[in-house]
């Protein structure tokens, strides 16, 4: 059941030394094994992304809404950034906050599963994945009702004077809470996978050497789980910052819209919105790829590569 956990592997490409170039011959078996999958990814991933890029540079036919012509209209990017930069900032901020909270919640769970659960380990693992099957839309709507103004959570916080705006739904708090909740399993599973591989004896040895539980955790356990933490943060941050469902179901129209909401409405609700929506999508993808690369370089260099 080490299902979703595996992207940890993805981030640690173990390169074997390549044979010298002269010895390489065309490998027919490899070619046949690769052909269908690679072809699928090229036709339905690479080509659409390239097409999205060309659309992001198209211009509208004046007077014909919904029709575009091929162009190098950088103006779309200018519009996208000038008009919607707050949504970008918000998306990255909400995504970052959700990733942080998901990490804080996921670590104890993954730790307990790996070291304390014993024979309950597989049961707990199933429990982490199982909520996927009750559509995440249904669960997010459930959160909207649980956090509603007259609900238990909001009233309790109000009584304690911990709720400055008097409500949770329609605020950024609800959106971040929803993002944290929805992507939590993607944080738990990779951390669990890397902790599970760790030898408990090493941690015991750490206890013998340092004594203090916290020092052992900081110097032994945490570093061993870093590849999982890295994979988990990526698998949480990327979908969280591109999400629009939580912002539209839990947030408000004005102050909590994320870039995903803008892309969605530009595609479906704004006539002639395709080019700007495409340039927004492309910018989002570029920003995330740059952040991910920097992050992996910064935190992954010692442990991973």
């Amino acid at each position: 059941m080490s299902v979703v956990a595996e992207p940890a592997e993805e981030l640690t490409p173990q390169r074997e030394p390549d044979p010298p170039r002269s010895k390489r011959r065309f490998n027919t078996t490899a070619f046949l094994l690769l052909l269908p999958g690679v072809l699928w990814l090229i036709v339905f991933f690479v080509v659409p992304i390239v097409q999205l890029f060309t659309v992001s540079l198209q211009s509208k036919y004046p007077g014909f809404p919904g029709y575009y012509y091929r162009d190098v209209n950088v103006g779309n990017y200018v519009t996208a950034l000038a008009e919607f930069w707050p949504h970008f900032v918000r998306s990255l901020l909400y995504g970052g906050l959700a990733t942080f909270f998901a990490f804080a919640l996921a670590y104890p769970l993954a730790y307990a599963m790996a070291f304390k659960a014993g024979r309950w380990r597989n049961v707990m693992l199933i429990c982490v994945i199982a909520p996927f099957f009750t559509s995440f839309i249904l669960r997010t709507i459930a959160w909207r009702q649980i956090l509603a103004d007259d609900g238990f959570v909001a009233s309790a916080l109000r009584t304690l004077h911990l709720l400055p705006g008097d409500r949770i739904t329609e605020t950024w708090i609800a959106v971040v809470a929803g993002l944290t909740y929805n992507f939590l399993p993607f944080m738990v599973l990779p951390i669990y996978a890397s902790l599970e591989r760790a030898d408990p004896k090493v941690i015991e040895a750490g206890g013998d050497l340092y004594g203090n539980g916290f020092t052992t955790f900081r110097t032994v356990t945490l570093p061993m789980s870093l590849p999982g933490v890295l994979a988990g943060t990526l698998l949480t941050f990327i979908p969280a910052s591109g999400d629009f469902v939580n912002a539209s179901l839990l947030g408000s129209d004005r102050s909590t819209k994320m870039v995903g909401n803008v892309i969605e409405s530009q595609f479906f609700k704004v006539p002639g919105g395709f080019p700007v929506a495409a340039s927004l999508s492309f910018t989002l993808m570029a920003v995330i790829l740059v952040l991910v690369t920097l992050y992996v370089r910064r935190f992954g260099s010692e442990e991973l590569v």
């Binding site: 993805e10 339905f44 659309v55 990526l234 990327i238 979908p239 591109g242 492309f282 995330i288």
Partner: peptide
């Protein structure tokens, strides 16, 4: 390997948008 990895590092909304355009 890169071709397999990049779709996972692409936000779903970008995948959806690119497929819609194509």
């Amino acid at each position: 390997n890169v071709l397999v990895f990049v779709p996972m590092a692409t936000p779903e909304i970008v995948l959806g948008a690119s497929l819609l355009t194509i």
